[in-house]
């Protein structure tokens, strides 16, 4: 079985739809409150250097998320420049 693509795998400029969150309740709630919910479109704007965080946009909100935590967000339906 192929593992689904994860938020951490997006390249800058690419968008995708969020599939599911494998985060614990605390992080899951915070992500949801900031708009990262299953079914929402998310765009990766840029990655910080030296393994730093990701700069994302969901709806009208921009946020930063560590790569480690972004690995817990599964995606469906990737598109955009790959």
């Amino acid at each position: 079985m192929r593992t689904p693509p994860r938020l951490a795998d997006l390249v800058p400029g690419q968008s995708a739809t969020i599939g599911s969150l494998a985060a614990d309740t605390g992080l899951g709630q915070r992500l949801a409150a900031l708009g990262l919910r299953p079914g929402q479109r998310v765009e990766l704007l840029r990655r910080a250097g030296w393994g730093g965080p990701l700069h994302l946009r969901v709806g009208m909100t921009e946020l930063m998320l560590r790569r480690r935590d972004a690995a817990r967000v599964d995606l469906i339906a990737l598109d955009g420049a790959a």
Partner: peptide, 9 residues
């Protein structure tokens, strides 16, 4: 601890 922060305009 995970880190999620808003980047306001």
């Amino acid at each position: 601890e995970p880190l999620v922060l808003e980047l306001p305009p």
